[in-house]
Amino acid sequence: MRRNLRVAAYAVCVRDGQLLLARSPGPDGTPEWVLPGGGMEHGEDPYDTVRREVTEETGYHIEVTGLLGVDSHRVTVGRTDHHAVRFVYEGEITGGELRYEIDGSTDFAAWQPLEAVPGLNRIPLVDTALRLWRERPLHGRLEEPPLPNEMNKE
Rank of each mutant, 00 (worst) to 15 (best):
E144N: 07
T65K: 00
G37D: 05
E90N: 05
D28S: 14
T55C: 06
R6L: 15
D127F: 11
G91P: 05
M40E: 04
V54W: 03
I123S: 02
L142Y: 10
T80I: 13
V54C: 06
E97W: 06
K153A: 04
V88N: 00
A8L: 03
W33C: 04
A110K: 07
H139S: 14
G38F: 02
V50S: 08
T94C: 11
W133M: 05
D103F: 13
I93Q: 06
V54Q: 03
G39I: 05
N152D: 10
R86D: 02
E101H: 01
G66A: 13
V64D: 04
G119F: 15
I93K: 07
A11H: 07
K153T: 02
E63N: 05
G59V: 12
R74H: 05
H73M: 11
E143F: 08
D127E: 15
E97L: 09
L120A: 08
A129F: 08
R51W: 01
V88F: 00
C13S: 12
E115I: 11
E143K: 10
G59F: 14
R122V: 04
E97Y: 12
T94S: 10
A9E: 01
A116F: 14
V126D: 00
R2G: 00
P31Y: 13
G43W: 03
E41C: 09
P124Q: 12
G96N: 09
G38R: 01
G95L: 04
P31D: 11
E144I: 01
L125C: 07
I123M: 06
R86C: 02
P137S: 09
G37E: 04
P25I: 11
R79V: 06
A84T: 06
G26M: 08
T76V: 15
E97K: 12
H61M: 10
M151V: 15
L147Y: 11
W133T: 00
V117K: 09
K153I: 02
E32G: 08
N121P: 03
E97S: 13
D28T: 10
A84N: 06
A129G: 02
E32V: 14
P118K: 07
V54P: 00
A8V: 02
G69R: 03
A9F: 01
R52S: 00
D103V: 13
T65Y: 00
T80Q: 09
V7K: 13
T30E: 14
L98R: 09
G43E: 12
H73E: 14
D48Q: 15
G95K: 04
P118E: 06
G78T: 05
G29L: 07
M1G: 15
E53Y: 02
F108N: 02
N152R: 08
V75T: 14
I102Y: 15
V64Y: 00
E32N: 10
R86M: 09
V7Q: 06
W111S: 02
D81A: 10
A22N: 05
E90C: 08
L5T: 11
R3E: 14
P113V: 08
V12H: 02
A8P: 04
A84V: 02
E63D: 11
V117S: 06
L114K: 07
G43R: 13
G119E: 14
D16I: 01
G26A: 09
L125I: 08
I123N: 02
R134D: 12
D48R: 07
F87S: 03
G37R: 05
